[in-house]
């Protein structure tokens, strides 16, 4: 509001690194000339152009903090997709990648927005929330944060080592995993889809008025948002972003 509209122009970024996160998820580290920064939670549009001029566009969340020197997007490879298999299988360091952004002014959080902050993620829906956690860590913020993160199995947890590291020296950060399809031997954590009972146990009470940011596949986001409202949380404090089964 009040900002002067300026065109989000297409730029050619250079791929600095391709980092596998899990078997199906990878991160692309990008050097973007003239990048003006972003807010944690925002996304970019990527545009691929074939030699004959055919183009395809998709949106990807930025998973890096604004404080990081390069921007990182985290991409789930969809077998029947058009863009994500290219990003996962073809793109190499040194390649160019056309993009524009940052986009989106709603599903964002900075340390100035305060807390407590409840993050709820499913699968690669963690990507925009990771930008918030990385930003908070870079600022050495003590805003209380709880992340409830649903993955299919232990090896599907993206940024697992980094999450462990962040939690290990931060008393104001809690990370709770649930594994919905398979659990390793000795797993003592949650082993079901996120439901109201789990949210009641993990989230702050409604009276604490946490800001909730929920990102993942549509059925999960619908279930979590409905459950939070049923628990008494203010719908106006619940923000959602959905990664559909589509998006390629």
């Amino acid at each position: 509001m009040g900002a002067v509209p300026s065109r989000l122009s297409w730029r050619v970024a250079t791929v600095r690194a391709v980092q596998p996160e899990t078997q199906r998820v990878l991160s692309l580290v990008l050097d973007v000339p003239g990048w003006d920064g972003h807010q944690p939670g925002q996304h970019i549009d990527v545009r691929l152009t074939a030699a004959d001029g055919y183009q395809a566009q998709r949106s990807y969340s930025i998973s890096s903090a604004p404080e990081d020197p390069a921007i990182t997007i985290t991409v789930e490879r969809l077998d029947d997709g058009e863009v994500s298999p290219y990003l996962a299988d073809v793109l190499r360091p040194g390649d160019g990648l056309e993009l524009r952004g940052p986009i989106g002014g709603w599903f964002t959080w900075t340390t100035q927005d305060g807390g407590p902050l409840l993050l709820v993620a499913g699968g690669s829906g963690l990507a925009p929330l990771m930008a918030m956690l990385r930003h908070r860590a870079a600022r050495r913020s003590t805003v209380p944060v709880r992340l409830l993160y649903s993955s299919r199995g232990f090896d599907d947890i993206i940024y697992r080592a980094e999450l462990d590291r962040l939690v290990s020296h931060d008393p104001d950060l809690a990370v709770v995993h649930t594994l919905t399809r398979s659990q390793p031997p000795g797993w003592t954590g949650y082993a079901r889809r996120i439901d109201g009972a789990m949210l009641a146990a993990v989230a702050w009470a409604p009276e604490a008025r946490p800001l909730a940011m929920v990102c993942g596949p549509t059925p999960m986001v619908e279930a979590v948002a409905d459950a939070l409202v049923a628990l008494g949380h203010d719908p106006g404090r619940i923000r959602t972003e959905r990664f559909g089964p589509t998006g390629g």
Binding site: R47, L48, A50, Y54, Q55, A56, Q57, E82, W106, F107, T218, E222, A225, D226, L228, V229, P235, G236, I238, R239, T240, R242, G244, P245, T246, G247, G248
Partner: peptide
């Protein structure tokens, strides 16, 4: 590119791809 094989013949605006499902998008709870 493989999207063009789906033959939406002039019905896809620039930058769009053909979707057969019905994705849900919204900013908050339903």
């Amino acid at each position: 590119g493989r999207g063009r094989r789906e033959g939406a013949a002039g019905r896809l605006p620039p930058g769009q791809y053909l979707e057969h499902g019905f994705p849900v998008l919204s900013a908050g709870p339903t």
